[in-house]
Amino acid sequence: MAKIVKKSPIPLYGAAAVWLLWAVFLPMYALWHFALVAAASVLVWFGLKKLCPDKVLNLPDPEPQPEPEPEPAGQAPEDPIAAERARALSELRRLDDNIEDEKISAQIVHMEEVTGKIFDIVAQQPAKLPQIRRFLNYYLPTTLKLLNAYDRMGSAGVEGANIDGTMGRIDAMMDKVVQAFDKQLDALFADEALDISTDITVLEQMLAREGLGGMQMGQS
Rank of each mutant, 00 (worst) to 15 (best):
L136P: 03
K50Q: 12
T142E: 14
P141D: 10
A123D: 07
W22E: 02
T201A: 13
L51D: 14
A23Y: 09
M174R: 01
A180M: 04
C52N: 03
A15Y: 05
G213R: 09
I200S: 01
E192A: 10
Q65A: 11
G165P: 00
T166Y: 12
Q107N: 07
P60I: 12
G116I: 00
K7I: 09
L89V: 10
E69L: 11
I10E: 05
P27F: 06
T142W: 07
V56H: 08
G218K: 08
M206W: 07
E69F: 05
E67Y: 13
I104N: 03
F25M: 07
V42T: 14
P77S: 04
Q219H: 11
V158F: 01
D96T: 12
G213K: 01
F46Q: 09
K3Q: 08
D164Y: 13
L59S: 09
Y150E: 02
R93F: 09
G14E: 06
D54G: 11
V122Y: 02
M28L: 13
G154Y: 05
R133A: 10
S41P: 08
V18R: 00
K117W: 09
V5K: 04
A88P: 01
A82M: 06
V158H: 08
F46C: 08
A82Y: 05
A23P: 15
L129I: 13
P62S: 07
A73K: 01
L92D: 00
N58T: 13
P126C: 11
L43N: 04
G14R: 03
Q179F: 10
P11F: 13
L89F: 02
T115W: 00
S220P: 03
N162I: 15
V56C: 07
N58K: 15
I108S: 01
I104F: 11
R93Y: 06
A187Y: 02
V177F: 08
I196T: 12
A35P: 15
I10L: 08
V114M: 00
E100V: 15
P80S: 06
H110S: 11
M167W: 07
I4N: 04
E159C: 13
I170S: 01
S8V: 06
Q107C: 03
P72R: 03
Q107H: 11
D97G: 14
K50F: 09
Q65E: 13
A127S: 10
L12H: 13
